[in-house]
Structure formats: structure tokens, C-alpha cells
């Protein structure tokens, strides 16, 4: 517990943590601003074909659609921020040689890193919570409520209450994917030790994962279990019928990937010399 407290304290003493939070708000502000000025145009393009046949009553540019746009930042921006901050939790200690000082005291190496993993995961959850809260409050406050329209091989409309709970679940389950990327970045920090190398490796990992998401592995099982195929699990909440079985299986698998990545990191850290 003491290790957890110390790690949390160290994390929130770092200025880059606050830069990350600011960056998160900045991304959110950009999405909100672009939606405010260009949202109607986007909706018009999406519904252009239907305009020949239908009149539309009501507005689709509403808080739910904006939150959905913000959720899409899960794909790249938020994991990238998390990876930079989380990897810094270890790389700065390597660089500033504080690790050597720490291990002059009776601290078990794997427990020390485990504390970092736990704090990193909690910090990621905190970031998602912050993103979710602010996006719900700002989006509903500025754009109001209404039906959510999404495109998944056709247009699917969700009424406000339905959309709200799907968005909440999407944030919840999307968090798992972010925790995975944070854990990976900490494991990369164990391997590479240097900040820049770790950032580059982490960004590369994220880019490759995003690219691989679209690649068909030619095998149903691999398409189901490969980690990069699990990162879009939150999108399943925007299918008309929610495939709970798939979501639960994917989440359990993602949990296992997180666990295995942590164990690899703990094993390597335990084996490696500090220096």
C-alpha cells in the first residue's frame, strides 16, 4: 500500500502528468469546436442520399453524436498520451538514477514495479473517467440531447436513453484497451530504459496495432483472439443488437493480455540489473 501511495504521489508531482491532462482537454476542445462549426455539414453529407426520399424532423448533431466523436479519440490520441506518461514513470527513474536509491532500501523489485503497474492502470482509468465526465457534461450542455446515428454497414439510430447507456458502456470497456496500452508502455520502459526510445517504441506499437486492426488474419480464431483485434471492442456497443458474448470474451482476453504483459515486465525487471 505504501508503494502505491508513493507511486501515486510521484505521478502527480510530475508536470508531464498535468500536460497530459491538458492535452486531453485540448483534444476534446478540438472535437467540440469542429463539431460546432462543421458538424451540420458532416451530417448533411451522411444523410445526403436520404434527402431525396425523406424529410428530417429533429436534429442529429447533438451531445450523443459529439460524445461518439470523442470516443473515437480512443483509437490513437488517448492511448498515446497514456503511453507517454506511464512509460515516463519508470524511464525518468532510470535516467535520474533514483531507482538505485530506491533499491538501496529493502524494497522487493517486482513489488515495486507491480505498484507502478497498478498506479499506471488507475491513472489510465482516471483519465478515461475525466474524459467521459467532461465530454458528457460539455456535449450535452452545448449540443443537447437527441438520437445518435452511427454507421456500421448501414445507418443505425439509437434513441437518447439507449445511446446514453451504450456510450457509458463503450467508455467502460474502452478503458480496458487503454489500460493494455499503458501496461505495454511500462513493460517497454523496463526493456528500453530510455524515455525517447520507449516513446518511439510505444508509438510504433500503437500505430502497428491500429493498422493490424483492419487486416484480416484469414482465420476466425486469430481474428477473434489477436490483441489488436480486441481494441475495437467498445464499437460493439454501437451494433443494433449488442453482442454481449463477444464483448465479454474479448474483455476477458484483453484482461489476460494485460496480465501476461505485466508478468513479462515483472519477470524482466526482477532479472535485470538496475543501472
Amino acid at each position: 500500500m505504501r508503494l502505491l501511495y508513493i507511486e501515486t504521489y510521484k505521478l502527480f508531482r510530475q508536470s508531464r502528468t498535468y500536460y497530459a491532462i491538458l492535452a486531453l482537454f485540448f483534444i476534446e476542445a478540438i472535437v467540440l469546436l469542429s463539431a460546432y462549426y462543421q458538424g451540420t455539414g458532416i451530417i448533411d453529407i451522411v444523410l445526403a442520399n436520404l434527402k431525396d426520399t425523406f424529410y428530417f424532423q429533429g436534429k442529429l448533431l447533438n451531445g450523443n453524436l459529439i460524445i461518439y466523436f470523442i470516443l473515437n479519440s480512443f483509437w490513437f490520441h488517448v492511448p498515446l498520451l497514456c503511453m507517454i506518461i506511464v512509460s515516463g514513470m519508470l524511464t525518468t527513474e532510470y535516467q535520474e538514477k533514483t531507482l538505485q536509491t530506491v533499491f538501496m532500501q529493502p524494497v522487493v523489485k517486482w513489488k515495486y514495479l507491480l505498484a507502478k503497474y497498478i498506479v499506471a492502470s488507475l491513472f489510465t482509468i482516471f483519465l478515461v473517467l475525466l474524459l467521459a465526465l467532461t465530454s458528457f457534461i460539455l456535449s450535452y450542455g452545448i449540443f443537447g440531447k437527441g438520437d445518435l446515428v452511427v454507421y456500421t454497414n448501414g445507418l443505425t439510430f439509437f434513441e437518447h436513453d439507449d445511446a446514453f447507456y451504450r456510450l457509458v458502456y463503450a467508455f467502460l470497456f474502452g478503458t480496458l484497451s487503454l489500460v493494455f496500452f499503458s501496461v505495454v508502455s511500462l513493460t517497454l520502459a523496463v526493456l528500453l530504459k530510455e524515455s525517447f526510445k520507449t516513446w518511439i517504441a510505444a508509438a510504433l506499437f500503437l500505430i502497428v496495432s491500429t493498422l493490424l486492426l483492419k487486416i484480416d488474419l484469414g482465420n476466425e480464431v486469430w481474428n477473434q483472439i489477436a490483441f489488436f483485434k480486441l481494441n475495437n471492442t467498445w464499437q460493439y456497443f454501437f451494433n443494433h443488437d449488442i453482442e454481449w458474448n463477444t464483448i465479454i470474451i474479448n474483455s476477458v482476453l484483453m484482461g489476460l493480455y494485460i496480465l501476461v504483459t505485466m508478468l513479462v515486465g515483472l519477470f524482466l525487471f526482477q532479472k535485470k540489473d538496475i543501472g
Binding site: L50, F54, Y55, F56, Q57, G58, G146, D147, F157, E159
Partner: peptide, 8 residues
């Protein structure tokens, strides 16, 4: 009050 598609 909802969003509705009304056939032209």
C-alpha cells in the same frame, strides 16, 4: 420531439 424520417 424525436428525430424522424418522414417520407416525402
Amino acid at each position: 420531439e424525436d428525430f424522424v424520417l418522414i417520407p416525402k
